[in-house]
């Protein structure tokens, strides 16, 4: 016999899916959003995103090699790149480089690797990095550059985001709402904000791609968006002069980016469809509550991180429907 026969248990075939496939799939889905951000923020978007990716990959490599002392390095599986891109997308395009690196260190070092690396983290690393920066450096993190200053980076002129205007309205300055961009502009991405979050249409394109490639299921994004729409709609019906209409909530801030790309992070989201819907409803609800009544204008990151923490609990109590359960009664 030429070679030894291999003995292994069934199944003997595999659908050839891999971690890389999924991670790079998400990256491809992020391309439209990145193109819009280049168009809107120019150079700044490029610098911030690339710095963030490079820093995340470097920290992942360094920690695997020097602290874990694992032989096989995992930087090529795409998860660090994805964390880098998502972190960058959640930052303003005029953020200084040293802050980005600090955020990447927190995202990869604290939120991901200190729990054991890919698959073990409790919190979404990119969001943890972003929230760390937001709490520690609120000034830099909330000064948003005006759109279409293609060559300016840290010296870009800043302005208020739609969300900040909404917040002012809730706080009593109803005139602030007059400065809001039109909802079509917000849908297309012509408004200030974090790099990747501005264009709802580009993010929805990515969503469609991921659904088509079966990278994610519809449950989390749809339940978040529906919840936000319903809750924000109720407030709007209650007082249309203080609260903006629900589509503004949907197209503003990190809601689309969060619902489609951050909340659906495999590691930190629930495992069953039922659980995913509960998780999505929780995020949607918390987001609106924070946006309207919290100290910060944006609540998406906090809402996702809070629900991340609940994920193990949801997993424990939301079991899939077992085959034959219905008949048993």
């Amino acid at each position: 016999m030429a070679n030894k026969l291999t003995l292994s248990l069934s199944p003997h075939v595999h659908n050839n899916d891999s971690i890389q496939n999924n991670m790079y799939g998400v990256l491809i889905a992020l391309i439209p959003a990145f193109l819009v951000s280049l168009f809107v923020f120019g150079l700044g978007a490029l610098i911030v995103t690339l710095t963030s990716v490079a820093a995340c990959v470097f920290f992942e490599w360094a920690i695997t090699k020097f602290i874990f002392k694992r032989e096989k390095n995992t930087i090529l599986d795409g998860s660090a790149i994805l964390t880098g891109v998502l972190l960058g997308f959640n930052l303003p395009s005029n953020l200084p480089i040293w802050l980005i690196i600090l955020g990447a260190l927190f995202a990869i070092g604290v939120a991901k690797m200190s729990f054991g690396g890919l698959g073990c983290n409790i919190l979404n690393p990119a969001l943890a990095g972003r929230v760390f920066l937001l709490i520690s450096y609120p000034v830099q993190m909330t000064s948003w550059p005006q759109i279409q200053q293609f060559t300016n980076y840290v010296d870009a002129e800043t302005t208020a985001t739609p969300l900040a205007l909404m917040k002012q309205a809730v706080k009593g300055n109803a005139d602030a709402l007059n400065d809001l961009p039109s909802s079509l502009d917000m849908f297309l991405g012509m408004n200030p904000g974090s790099i990747g979050e501005i264009s709802a249409i580009a993010l929805l394109l990515g969503f469609a791609y991921m659904l088509w490639k079966k990278i994610i299921t519809w449950h989390i994004p749809v339940s978040i968006i529906a919840t936000v729409f319903v809750v924000a709609g109720l407030f709007y019906l209650y007082d249309p002069y203080t609260f903006v209409s629900p589509e503004y909530h949907l197209f503003s801030g990190g809601l689309m980016l969060g619902a489609i790309f951050m909340a659906t992070d495999y590691v930190t989201s629930p495992m069953t469809h039922k659980g995913m819907i509960i998780y999505g409803i929780g995020i949607g609800f918390l987001t609106i509550i924070i946006r309207l009544f919290g100290a910060y204008p944006e609540g998406m990151s906090f809402a996702i991180l809070i629900m991340n923490v609940f994920t193990p609990l949801i997993n424990t109590y939301c079991k899939p429907k077992r085959f034959g359960e219905v008949v048993k009664k």
């Binding site: 016999m1 030894k4 003995l7």
Partner: peptide, 17 residues
């Protein structure tokens, strides 16, 4: 050795294979 086991490094599982 006349064959090669490919699976989890566990005797219990290899024994069942």
């Amino acid at each position: 050795r006349i064959a090669e086991y490919d699976g989890v490094r566990s005797c219990a599982i290899a024994n069942a294979t």
